[in-house]
Design a protein around this nucleic acid. Sequence first.
DNA 1: CTAATGACGCTAC
DNA 2: CGTAGCGCCATTA
Length: 105
Amino acid sequence: MNDEKKGRFETIFDYVRTIPTGRVLAYGEVGQAVGETARTVGWAMSLVPKDVPWHRVVGADGYLRIARRATELATEQRRRLQEEGVILNEKDCVLAEYFWSQESA
DNA sequence: CTAATGACGCTAC
DNA sequence: CGTAGCGCCATTA
């Protein structure tokens, strides 16, 4: 245990795992919560394990920033979100009401 | 140590 | 509304 040498990812992964179903968060929001920047979060997402709901992480404006690099993954992410009850706009944009807030519940 | 990259965020044009 | 550039930080070569 204690493999903290893996990097800062562990902190980010742990936070993403705490995201409830039907809710989403932005890279910057997660980064701010763990004390890292959006860049670091985005990097961690590329190495995120399967036990982490990476599909619940979207852009700060609610759009799937991933679509810019991997449109195929964006389609899969969009499908997963809808299965969890998250509705997306015609532009693959998540409604602000789906953004999760620790103080909101 | 330097250079390049990356699933970001924002401003500028 | 679309594209480009800068900042910011971590990882890899």
